[in-house]
């Protein structure tokens, strides 16, 4: 916007209103500049909020942060110290492993149930649309709130899940208080949260499959399962890729849900890379160590994104 104040712009302005043929190259440049004016603010915003943190995290991982850093402004470079400390701590390996288990468990659960429900809702029946809309609710409620509601449901002594299971003679399961059960419990809750998203996207994909394809398959005498496996699934592959990639991106960085359910406990048994980054930076105020774990998290996402993009490109050929 400040460009208008500059001399060349002022003359150019006079030229356009007078409709005299302007210098075409300069006019084009001016137009391009004005057009970028629409896009540039958003690009700048995204560079600040997504690009800058990526760079800054790499730098921070080589700096020594202490609780007093934010008063003194001093965070001296300390080489590979943060990296050595993080990798030397057993907690990192534990969090990494738990992140992998959590991500795979969540994705498998969400996807399988979501696909089942998508297939179910792909039939025509009364109230289909209403039911499909309402099933989205768990996905739209703030994740921390869902976590807190489940914390009450999963309570060992007074939670409704154990009361219900008690009817079948299943004893009081320490869902959130046992180091063996807690990660499974967090996965189960995350599956519940993720089902609607998987269902909606997969349902959209199923709707795109032309009805004639099914008709042709049934004319050929294919069974329902056979049709699903060798006709529907291959046609659904691009949508499946999208849903799994988006699911992966949002699952691997999990933080809200774990904090609301277990705060990473008991005994770090639900600590993930996301919560470890948080703990390092915002609880211990060791932002250098937090940055190291954050970088690993980005690296995992990036590797996955590259695989995804490559798979997409091969598909296009």
């Amino acid at each position: 916007m400040s460009i208008t104040a500059a001399a060349p712009a002022a003359t150019a302005d006079g030229i356009t209103t007078a409709a005299v043929a302007p210098d075409p190259a300069r006019a084009r440049r001016r137009r391009t500049l004005a057009q970028w004016g629409f896009v540039a603010p958003a690009v700048l915003f995204m560079l600040l909020f997504f690009g800058y943190p990526l760079v800054r995290n790499v730098v921070m991982s080589f700096q020594h942060y202490t609780p007093s850093t934010f008063f003194t402004g001093k965070a001296p470079f300390n080489g590979l110290d943060n990296w050595r400390n993080v990798f030397g701590d057993d907690l990192f390996g534990k969090a990494l492993w738990q992140t992998i288990v959590f991500t795979i468990g969540s994705l498998v659960g969400q996807f399988c149930i979501g696909l089942g429900l998508a297939v179910f809702f792909n039939r025509r029946f009364p109230l289909n649309g209403v039911l499909r809309a309402l099933i989205l609710l768990p996905w739209l409620v703030p994740m921390v709130v869902s976590g807190i509601v489940w914390r009450r449901i999963l309570d060992q002594d007074t939670g409704v899940l154990n009361s219900f299971l008690g009817l079948f003679g299943i004893g009081h399961t320490p869902w959130l208080t046992s180091t063996h059960m807690a990660l499974l419990a967090v996965i189960l809750v995350n599956v519940w949260i993720g089902i609607p998203f998987n269902m909606v996207i997969l349902y959209g994909g199923l709707q795109e499959v032309p009805r004639e394809v099914y008709e042709a398959a049934s004319l050929d005498g294919a069974s329902a399962w056979r049709t699903f496996r060798s006709v529907t699934l291959p046609l659904l592959k691009p949508v499946i890729t999208v849903v799994l990639v988006l699911g992966f991106m949002s699952t691997v960085k999990i933080l809200d849900l774990v904090l609301a359910l277990t705060d990473g406990g008991p005994a770090d048994s639900t600590q993930t890379l996301g919560t470890l980054t948080y703990q390092n930076s915002f609880v211990q105020l060791d932002f250098g160590a937090g940055a190291v774990v954050g970088n690993i998290l980005i690296l995992i996402s990036a590797v996955f994104a590259v695989f995804y993009l490559r798979a997409n490109r091969n598909e296009g050929k």
């Binding site: 391009t32 057009q35 970028w36 629409f38 896009v39 690009v43 995204m46 909020f49 997504f50 800058y52 943190p53 990526l54 800054r56 995290n57 921070m60 934010f70 988006l246 991106m249 691997v252 960085k253 933080l255 996301g274 980054t277 948080y278 930076s281 915002f282 932002f287 937090g290 940055a291 954050g294 970088n295 998290l297 980005i298 996402s301 990036a302 994104a305």
Partner: peptide, 30 residues
């Protein structure tokens, strides 16, 4: 607008999904 580089911007916009929120918070806090 047929901007040169528009594709790159759209691609970049999609890629932002990849950056974990806690990483953003970690850097943005300071």
């Amino acid at each position: 607008f047929n901007l040169r580089g528009a594709k790159t911007v759209v691609f970049g916009t999609l890629i932002t999904q990849m950056v974990p929120g806690i990483v953003i918070a970690n850097a943005m806090y300071s």
